[in-house]
């Protein structure tokens, strides 16, 4: 990349891809290789249950509740979901839930289930709020739980984890198009940094092509929750799933375009987490068939 001029071209990706370690990028391998970079091992939890959606894609709240409990229990290494939530937040926290409300919105059932679990873990109900919105929403919280839905995006390539906080910047349009590589910096803003206790991706019914409006041909029942505390690692796993689904649909390579530069740059430029799949341990529950990762 010509950092001085700020011009990023296809050639930059090809150059950086050649000989790089396996990861995620335009061509399915990482271009964010940084010799000497300290490894950032990360864990990502993937829980799937094919009973969570019915034939009309409606959510079974009971199944979802069990999946959510299993997800946080695996992530936190605790014996119960209640203990797991207590390891993530405290009753004194002002907890902001940050779902996505457009393109492929987060299922309301997931937001409701997380809220109920937090209350069950001792967080007063009036201290759990919906925090999607402007910077003041994040400022008002001491803890954030990111609840994006898994989807591609026509301007940023992928529009799941990193993009979920775009409105916290106060200037969302500044992070589209050529500036999508800067999405990671939003997570480092003073009113956001360090507050995210959990990234929980709604992968019940993802969208693998980019919109700007959802096209049902590119949605499928994946029946999953994906979680972690490293937002870049979770995004990298999401990207792998979307990429695999696209190739399976077309029967040939179908790279996400524009390339999701934000993922590698969140690692390389902002040190927000790891985008390298080889540094990510995926712990799974549920069927491996169709997991795509």
């Amino acid at each position: 990349m010509d950092e001085r001029r700020g011009v990023v071209t296809r050639r930059d990706f090809v150059r950086a891809t050649t000989g790089a370690a396996v990861g995620v990028s335009l061509f399915g391998v990482s271009w964010a290789g940084q010799p000497g970079r300290t490894p950032r091992p990360a864990r990502v939890i993937l829980v799937r249950d094919q009973q969570v959606l019915d034939g009309s894609h409606q959510v079974d709240a009971g199944v979802l509740g069990r999946m959510l409990g299993e997800t946080v229990t695996l992530l936190a290494g605790e014996k119960s979901a209640r203990d797991a939530w207590r390891s993530l937040v405290s009753p004194a926290d002002a907890v902001g839930l940050v779902p996505t409300d457009h393109l492929n919105p987060t299922h309301g059932e997931i937001v409701a289930a997380v809220r109920a679990a937090l209350v069950d873990a001792g967080v007063p109900g009036d201290r759990v709020t919906l925090a999607q919105g402007g910077p003041q929403k994040a400022e008002a919280c001491t803890a954030l739980i990111a609840l994006p839905a898994l989807k591609a995006h026509w301007l940023t390539g992928i529009g799941t984890v990193l993009k979920n906080y775009i409105t916290f910047s106060g200037h969302p349009s500044r992070y589209h198009g050529e500036n999508n590589d800067r999405l990671g910096e939003i997570w480092q803003l003073p009113h956001v940094k360090g507050k995210t206790r959990l990234v929980l991706v709604d992968a019940l019914r993802p969208l693998c092509d980019k919109g700007p409006q959802a096209d049902p041909r590119y949605m499928w029942d994946y029946d999953g929750l994906i979680a972690g505390t490293d937002p870049v690692a979770v995004e990298a796993v999401c990207l792998k799933i979307i990429t695999a689904r696209r190739e399976a649909l077309k029967g040939e390579p179908w790279p996400i375009s524009p390339p999701p530069l934000c993922v590698a740059m969140a690692d390389k430029r902002y040190g927000l987490g790891t985008s390298r799949l080889e540094e990510i341990t995926i712990e799974r529950s549920g069927p491996s068939e169709g997991a795509l990762v």
Partner: peptide, 15 residues
């Protein structure tokens, strides 16, 4: 260039 990049990525900038 936004649509071009959606079809075939050349550059994030409108070169």
């Amino acid at each position: 260039h936004l649509v071009l990049n959606s079809a075939y990525f050349v550059s994030h900038q409108n070169i």
